[in-house]
């Protein structure tokens, strides 16, 4: 069988979707760990952020890889969604999906679209200003500015609310996504139950941890 048909097969696409998801999950854990330091120490948060913002390996290797991972994950998500819709041209007049599967598993495209919209807001809030600071205005490196920028963004109750709403949808996306990724790469053995618990724990701790951080800075102005 030609390698091209193997790569375009449903299983290859499923595995690619899972691997890009697991990559984003690992990045999210790093992002969360750094943000969490802002609750405990302004200095630690500033130094971590400055390292992430100016380390050449992170800036010129990991950042493009991350950008590719994000774009690949949502483009592939749309492609699979369209193919899946085409696989059932006529919908059921009555369908009881909740009888056999969770809302989160059936609506990954909805939770994914909300997370994607949130990414737009997040880039508007942090990434574009960062690019402007470093490359447009070419201002000097200031390792003390990050905490203030973060806290300033959470002054607005509307923005804080939008962030919290997006994190709830992120929780739903991860609730299914983490364990689904492991199943897709073929992981289903005696360790599956423990891994499922780890996946559910991750899906709760990280998004609700982000909500805690957002609310902490909102009410700690």
């Amino acid at each position: 069988m030609a390698k091209s048909s193997v790569l375009s097969s449903s299983i290859a696409k499923k595995v690619a979707m899972a691997l890009s998801g697991l990559f984003l999950i690992s990045f999210l854990a790093l992002h969360f760990s750094i943000n969490l330091t802002s609750v405990f120490s302004e200095e630690v948060f500033n130094s971590c952020s400055d390292f992430m913002g100016y380390n050449p390996l992170i800036q010129y290797v990991m950042q493009p890889v991350l950008a590719f991972g994000v774009v690949f994950h949502f483009v592939m998500g749309f492609v699979l969604e369209l193919q899946n819709r085409a696989a059932r041209p006529i919908a059921y007049a009555k369908n009881n999906g909740s009888a056999n599967s969770s809302w989160a598993s059936r609506n990954m495209i909805i939770s994914g679209l909300v997370v994607l919209a949130f990414l737009g807001l997040h880039f508007y809030d942090f990434w574009f200003p960062e690019m402007n600071y470093k490359y447009v205005e070419a201002l000097p490196q200031d390792p003390t500015r990050y905490y203030g920028e973060l806290v300033h963004k959470f002054e607005s109750p509307v923005r804080t609310g939008l962030y919290c709403l997006a994190f709830v949808l992120l929780f739903l996306h991860l609730w299914h996504g983490f364990n689904s990724s492991m199943q897709s790469v073929g992981f289903n053995n005696k360790f599956s139950r423990a891994l499922h618990k780890l996946g559910y724990a991750y899906a709760v701790i990280v998004p609700f941890g982000f909500i805690f951080i957002a609310l902490f800075h909102h009410f700690n102005q």
């Binding site: 449903s10 299983i11 696409k13 499923k14 595995v15 699979l80 193919q83 899946n84 085409a86 696989a87 059932r88 999906g97 009888a99 056999n100 599967s101 969770s102 598993s105 059936r106 990954m108 299914h176 364990n179 689904s180 199943q183 897709s184 790469v185 073929g186 992981f187 289903n188």
Partner: peptide, 28 residues
């Protein structure tokens, strides 16, 4: 023209013979 599996697990629940999702992971 079948669709792509997204691991909802609905198939396992509705299968009259209780075929497990473990088989999909093995196929992968």
């Amino acid at each position: 023209g079948f669709g792509n599996c997204t691991n909802t697990g609905a198939c396992e629940v509705e299968c009259p013979k209780g075929i497990s999702l473990e088989n999909i992971a093995r196929m992968n």
